[in-house]
Design a protein around this nucleic acid. Structure first.
Lengths: 96, 96
DNA sequence: CTTGTATTTAGATATTTATCTAATTATCTT
DNA sequence: AAGATAATTAGATAAATATCTAAATACAAG
């Protein structure tokens, strides 16, 4: 839906790497953090943007919060790019 | 392949709209500018980022500089997103 | 109910970025 | 060569953003 949130979320290399880590399965925030040299607070900020774009979903499991990839939104994103390749026909009007 | 330039370029709504305008055919900078409420200088900045990402190509035609879409890079971008959907196998750089 | 662990939020800061106006470069026309 | 038009570059600025430390929240287990 909001293409803006989506592409903004994808613009940051750390966030793309988070998605790549989640490719192989859902993980709690702490486990994700082990892949990165930045603080958990900073990662939390990235999680927020990924959630806003609906690229990830969360589920609380005890004290852990488990993140998982929302693959359908990734498909949507790829689709939005492909749309730019076709001559303008079914133009679903976009945001600013 | 600098995915960073690519996704950064796609993150801005004005730049995505430029690509959308170019979908229907190549255009000189001035003609593109008519679709936007910002100055030509600002647009030139956006053109630079799109060129850096190789999302557009340029060709001088007299006093005009004609911009056109580089569709293969858009395909690449869509492909990069699709890669995030598959379990991590052919992860790295080069391809057949 | 207190202590420990996991995660997020708050507040601050340095960098990046989108935009503007003004100046510059490149080409065309007379 | 001079003037007009097209586009870019330079320099400045306000807003956005990625990061940090410190504080707060949520849950689990003694």
């Amino acid at each position: 839906m909001p293409a803006q949130h989506l592409f903004k979320a994808l613009a940051d290399p750390t966030r793309r790497e988070i998605l790549r880590v989640l490719r192989d399965g859902s993980l709690p925030a702490g486990d994700i953090a082990e892949h990165f040299p930045i603080t958990r607070a900073s990662l939390s900020h990235h999680f927020n943007l990924l959630k806003q774009a609906e690229l990830v979903r969360t589920e609380r499991r005890g004290q852990h919060i488990v993140y998982s990839l929302n693959t359908s939104v990734l498909e949507d994103a790829a689709g939005l790019l492909m749309e730019l390749l076709r001559p303008k026909t079914t133009e679903t009007t976009d945001e600013s």
